[in-house]
Write a protein that binds this DNA or RNA. Structure first.
Lengths: 174, 174, 174, 174
DNA sequence: ACATAATCGAGACGGTACGTCAGGTCTTCCC
DNA sequence: GGGAAGACCTGACGTACCGTCTCGATTATGT
C-alpha cells in the first residue's frame, strides 16, 4: 500500500536540470545545494530527501546526460569509434568528471555510486567491442584504456584525437 | 641583505610531523589547519606563511616520506623491482595520495605541485628503467603503467603483487 | 597571561547597535542572527562566540539602553516619579520586554540573565523609594507593583498615566 | 446546508489527548505538530483544519483540563479557597501556562484566545468572591491578585501556601 | 645600545556553506 | 467533504572550516 502524496517527478527533473545548468555555468565546486534549490524552485529539504549530497546529485544529473548515446546496437561497434565517442563525451564533461571522481575520494558512498553509474558501464561498453579477443586479454585492454583515460582526466590533459591514436597504438601492441 | 628573525627550522619540522601524524590518524579530509597548528604547538599564521594551504602542507609532509628510498643507484634498476617498491610505498600512503589527487582537482596550484613533486618524479624513475627501449615506446609504457597505478588508487583497489604481475604482463606485451 | 588577538570592542558595539536598530525596526521575532551579523558587518560566528543566542544579545542591547537614567541620586527619589519614569521607559521598550520575557520562558539561561539584568535592578530601584516603610511592607509593595507592571506588559495593555495613578492608589491603600 | 462527512469527534479527542500527553512528557517547546499528529494517529492536515497552530491546540488541550473543577457553586465561594484552588491548578500546569503566555507574545490571535479562555474566566471567578466590596475596589483587588500570580509564574517561583498567605495579606491591607 | 624587521603563538575576525529542523500547505487515495 | 500519509516550499538555525588580522613576545641584523 503506497499512501501519502507521491513524489513529484517534475520537481525531480527541475532539480536535475538546475544542477546541470549551474555546474556547467560555474563549475562543481562553486555550486551549492542552496543555490540549486533556489534555481529549481525547490526546497533544500527536498534535495536532501532524495540525494545524500551534492556529489550524488551532480552524478545523477550528468550520468543521464553522458549516456545520451542512443545505443542502436546493430552489430558490434568498433573499438576505435567507441573510444572516439567516449573521449568526445568525456572532453565535454571533463571538469564535472574530474570533480566527481575527486569528491568520491572523500565519500565512500559516492565512490560506489560513481563506479556503478559511470565507471563500470563505460568499461562494459569497451568490453563489448572486444569480443574477438581472449577473455584475459579483454580485461587487460579494458584496464589499460580506462587507466589511460582517467589518468588523462585527472592530470587535466586533453582527450583529443592525438590521445585516441596513442591509445589505439597501445592496444594494437597488446 | 636579509634582516629580521630567521625562520625556525624546528617549527617547520614540528608542523610537518604533526601533519603526518594527524593525517594518518584521522584521514586527510578530517584534519584541519587549526588542528595541525595546535598539535604542532604552532600558530595558524605560521602555517599560512610557509604553505598556501592544507593540500600543499600535506604534500610536503608526505612527499619527503614517500621518497625515503635512499636511491643507492648502482646501475640501472630493474623495472619489476622499481614497480614493486613503487606499489609498496603507494599502498601505505594510498589514502593520502588519493586525497591529494582529489584535492588537486579543485586547486590548480596544488595540481601543479603534485605533478612536480610526485607524479613526474615517479614517472622519471620508471623511465630510467627502460633505457633499452625506443624513446616512443618508453613514453608509451610509462603512460600505461602510471595510468594503471593511478586508476587503481582512485578506484580504491589494492596495489598488491597480483596487480604488479598484471602490470608487468601488460608491459611485456607491448 | 592574556595572549592572542584581543576582543575588538568596536565590533561588539557594532553588533549591539545593529541589534537595537533591527529589533526596533522589525520587532524581535522577525530579526535573525544572520541579519544582525550582516548589518553589523560581522561574522555570525563572532556573535555566537560572545552570546549564546538572539535572546541574550537583544537583552544586552537593550539593558544598556533601558538603564539610560543618569541616576543623579541627590536624595531618595519619590515613588511616584520613579514609577512614572519606569513606565515611560517600559512603554517605549514594551515590545522588546514582552519578547524577552516570553523567550526567557523557553530558555532557562536567558531567564536568569533577564532577572539579573532587568527585573531585579528595577525592583531594587523601587525598594530604594520605600525606605520609610517597614521591611515586610516594602517587599509587599515591590511585589505588587512589579506584578502589576509585568502583567500589564504581557497582556499588552498601556502603561500610561491612568495606570500609574491606579498603581499608586493601590500602594496608598496598603 | 452542511454536506460531506461530518467531523469525527473521536479524532478530535485523540488529538487533544496526544497533545496533553506529549506536552507533559517533553514540554511545550519540544513538541511539534508533526509529532502530535503521529501520536494521535492523525494527519497533520487534520490538525491545521481545526486549529490555527500548536499554541491554540495546546490551549484547548489544557483549558479543558484546568477547568475540570465541577463548579458546584452553592453560594459565593470564599476568596481564600478560590485562590488556593487556583494556585493548586496553576502549579500543576505551570510550565504549560508559562509557555502559552510566552507564545502568545508572538502571536496576537493566540493572545486573544488565551485571554478569553484562561485569563478572563479566572479573573471573573475571583471577582465573584468579592461581591461584598465596592466595584472600584473589586477591580483593584482582582488586578493585584492576577498580577501577583502571573508574575510568579513567569518568574518561575512557586505558587505554594506561602504565596497564598502573602497574597491574602496584601488583599487584607487593601 | 638600540632601532629595524621578520618570526612566532594565540586567538579573534569576516565570510561562506553546510545539513537539520519546524511550520504550514498541497496532493494523493480511501471512506 | 473528512481523514491518514507524506511530499513539498520556506526560512532560521547553530556549526565548521577557511584564510586574514592583530596582539605581545622574541630574535636576528645594521648602526
Amino acid at each position: 500500500m503506497t499512501s501519502g502524496r507521491p513524489r513529484d517527478e517534475g520537481v525531480r527533473r527541475n532539480i536535475l536540470t538546475a544542477t546541470q545548468a549551474l555546474v556547467l555555468e560555474k563549475g562543481y565546486a562553486a555550486v551549492t545545494t542552496t543555490e540549486i534549490a533556489a534555481r529549481a524552485g525547490a526546497g533544500k529539504q527536498t534535495i536532501y530527501r532524495w540525494w545524500p549530497g551534492k556529489g550524488a546529485l551532480v552524478l545523477d544529473a550528468f550520468s543521464s546526460w553522458v549516456e545520451q548515446a542512443p545505443r542502436t546496437a546493430r552489430r558490434r561497434p568498433s573499438l576505435s569509434s567507441t573510444l572516439v565517442e567516449f573521449c568526445r563525451a568525456a572532453t565535454h564533461a571533463a571538469p564535472v568528471l574530474r570533480a566527481l571522481m575527486a569528491e568520491a575520494q572523500f565519500d565512500p558512498a559516492l565512490h560506489a555510486r560513481l563506479l556503478a553509474q559511470l565507471v563500470r558501464p563505460r568499461g562494459d561498453e569497451l568490453r563489448a567491442c572486444l569480443t574477438d579477443r581472449r577473455a584475459a586479454d579483454r580485461e587487460l585492454v579494458v584496464n589499460v584504456l580506462s587507466g589511460l583515460v582517467w589518468q588523462r582526466l585527472m592530470l587535466n590533459e586533453p582527450l583529443d584525437g592525438r590521445f585516441v591514436r596513442f591509445a589505439l597504438r597501445v592496444v594494437g601492441r597488446i
